Amino acid sequence: MEMEELVQKKLRLVFSDDSIIFDKTRFAGGLTNYNYIMNINGTEYVVRQPGGMTNLMIDRKIEKLNNKIVSELGLSSECIYFDEVSGIKISVYIENSKNIAQIDPCSSANIKAVSALMKKIHSSQKHFPNSFNWEKELNKYEHIIKELNGDFFFDYAALKKRLLDFMQKNIKNTISVPCHNDTVPENFVVDNKGRTYLVDWEYSGMNDPSWDVAAYILESRLTEDAIKYLLLDYYGKFPMPSEILKIKCYMMAQDLLWMVWAMIRHYSGDDFLDYCCFRYERFQRNVKTITVSSDYSIADMVKKC
């Protein structure tokens, strides 16, 4: 059965209405998955259609557990249906909402809201049952690409080793707290009353909190002033050089990891080649530069090539 047919079948089952048609006219965004807004019986929902190959990349059972935890903490939208086999999810749509990427990820008000949400999840006493280890995720993705008979960039192995050696030498202290691990500005949603939510917890797991900080900086392409504002608001003071270096390392690791993730989508037939190239070119530049001079600024690392 095609995924679209399965989504429609689930909608009819959940709402006990065999006349429901899976309506894809109101696209709500997504890279890993495709999200659509549907009005059913007067209530608007976000219906998630899982993207290609995601069943191999994401543990939906873990995601379901973690989604329940964050919903209880009031951090995410209300989920009314979650199929841990297919990954289809139905959530209540946050009315009149916009994601922070649509508003302004660099504004002080939005940075303050993002920082507050990250601190809330990072300090939560409700821990996730799993850990997010980017190296293990990378190895898993590499294995999938090999099974798809895909190729890597010619200098991939050498630059990956260069990054791992640099991280082993420079990252000394890590902690493990609940993390979202995909803190792109599109995942922060603001309602018409100014309340901010953090959605899409499929990569969530215990990790170092600097990973989330690094992700928001990188994915939002924050300006130098916005980066300083976030660091001061999140940490309470400007971080030590060792913490700054950890953030830089995680930024490079994220470009590498999500580039390989995108390669899987490319080799499975989706249009992700430009995304692969953009992330890899930035990774190439940053890893080559920072291993010569670790003073290379975070703001310079964010820029596209």
Rank of each mutant, 00 (worst) to 15 (best):
17 D>V: 06
18 D>R: 08
23 D>G: 04
28 A>M: 13
30 G>C: 11
31 L>S: 08
32 T>S: 09
36 Y>S: 02
42 G>F: 11
48 R>Q: 06
52 G>H: 04
53 M>V: 02
56 L>D: 13
57 M>Q: 12
61 K>S: 06
71 S>P: 01
75 L>S: 05
84 E>Y: 11
90 I>Q: 13
90 I>V: 09
93 Y>Q: 12
101 A>M: 15
101 A>Q: 11
104 D>R: 10
105 P>L: 05
106 C>I: 00
121 I>D: 08
125 Q>Y: 09
128 F>K: 05
133 N>R: 14
133 N>K: 14
137 E>T: 05
142 E>F: 04
142 E>V: 07
150 G>L: 00
153 F>P: 05
155 D>F: 07
155 D>E: 08
155 D>P: 00
156 Y>G: 06
158 A>T: 08
163 L>K: 10
165 D>Q: 12
170 N>R: 12
171 I>H: 10
171 I>L: 08
171 I>G: 06
173 N>K: 12
174 T>E: 15
176 S>N: 03
177 V>A: 03
179 C>D: 09
186 E>D: 15
198 L>Y: 07
203 Y>F: 15
204 S>D: 01
207 N>I: 02
211 W>L: 03
213 V>W: 02
216 Y>S: 08
226 A>N: 09
227 I>M: 02
240 M>V: 04
241 P>I: 07
243 E>W: 08
245 L>R: 10
249 C>H: 14
250 Y>E: 04
251 M>D: 09
252 M>F: 12
254 Q>H: 09
267 Y>F: 15
296 Y>N: 04
297 S>A: 11
303 K>E: 10
304 K>F: 10
305 C>Y: 14
